[in-house]
């Protein structure tokens, strides 16, 4: 993360991606979105090239729009919970 500005921007993007990802009603999509977000950010953690960082941020922002839209739709059509889901599952804690 080259500059402090992009650093806080990346962290804010990470926060909102995780926030919206954990709102999927469907277990499989929720788990995937959270895992995918986490993996992608950790994989690109050491990235130094400013141009690459900018393109990754742009990609993340596009994904955020999709996650926002799809998690909302998922909530509208939320179906039953799977057997593996417990009432108080804290999805963000597992890793």
């Amino acid at each position: 993360m080259a500059t402090p500005a992009s650093r806080s921007q990346v962290l804010a993007l990470y926060r909102s991606l995780l926030h919206h990802s954990s709102k999927f009603a469907a277990y499989n999509f929720r788990d995937y979105a959270v895992r995918r977000t986490r993996d992608a950010f950790h994989a690109a953690k050491g990235e130094q090239d400013p141009a690459k960082i900018q393109s990754l941020i742009a990609h993340g922002e596009k994904q955020l729009e999709i996650v926002k839209r799809q998690s909302l739709i998922s909530q509208l059509y939320g179906g039953e919970k799977l057997v593996v889901e417990t009432k108080h599952q804290k999805i963000l804690r597992r890793h």
Binding site: Y14, H19, R38, H42, K45
Partner: peptide, 8 residues
Amino acid sequence: LDTVEVVM
């Protein structure tokens, strides 16, 4: 990144 998750 982990700190963000702790705060969340």
